[in-house]
Structure formats: structure tokens, C-alpha cells
Amino acid sequence: MQIRQPILYGLVFILVLILVLVAIGGGLFNQSARWPVQWQHQAFNSLCHQMANRSFWINGQPMAVCSRCIGVYSGFALGWMLLPMLSLIRITRLAHIKKVLVVILLFNFIDAAGNLLGLWQNTLFSRAILGGMLGSSAALIFVGDFFHHN
């Protein structure tokens, strides 16, 4: 197996892991400060609505991002981790993944819009799963870019 651009792959790997850890919020470390003032919440303040009733809770504290956002970040992290294995089975062609990515993005918008208009009621898990699909398909775009099997 040949590895191309290992520094870039490793850097993104570390950054996305840090992002997931921060997004999980102060509950992971059982921080004593009230969650609105925790640095994790401040960090994601302008990136996510952070509504506690639309977020997963850990140790009595909501995560620093909503369930859809944590799905996106963890899905991207998972997809990125699986890149070496996925490049082995050559599951993809870029054109297909692009289409899948656009379809999943549309699903996310439709889901949010339908919920907002009262057409249906989505749940923490449905939002997390849709977000996770978006994040992982974004990572899958890079299959074959970093790992190459002869």
C-alpha cells in the first residue's frame, strides 16, 4: 500500500478528532462550570444553534453542538479513519460519491424544513444519523487520494 501526502492525512485526522472531542462538550470531562460558559460551548457558539433540547446529553450536560452537527463531525471522523480500508476495496467512483453527497445534503435540508413546518417530528437520533451520513460521505470523496493499493 502506498501512502500519499501522509502529513496532510495525519493533520486532518488529528484536527477532526480534536473537533469531535470539543463538540462532545464539557460533559465528557464532567466539567463543573455551567454549560453556557464552558469553553466548548463558546467555541461552537457561532457555528451551531446549540439548543440543549436538540442535543445529546452526557453527565447531565448537553453537548456543545446539536445532534445533527455531532453526527456530521463524527461521521466525517469515521469516514476519514476508514479511508485506508475503503481504498483497499475500491468501492467508489468520484462522480457517484458527489451525487450521494448532494442527495444526503438535500435530505438534511428537507428533514429540517419538514420539522420546522410541522410536517413531521424528527428525533435526536434521526438528525444524528442524517448528519453522520453527510459527514461520512464528505470524507469518502477522498477515497484513493491518500492510500493506493497496487
Partner: peptide
């Protein structure tokens, strides 16, 4: 704890 106007935020997640 969270007003309906914050629902607007659902669409702006990650926009930046």
C-alpha cells in the same frame, strides 16, 4: 429555555 426564534438557527448550522 429555548425560544422558537432559535429554530431559525437550525438552518444556519455550519453555514460559515
Amino acid at each position: 429555555l429555548f425560544s422558537p426564534v432559535q429554530l431559525l438557527g437550525i438552518f444556519v448550522c455550519l453555514v460559515g
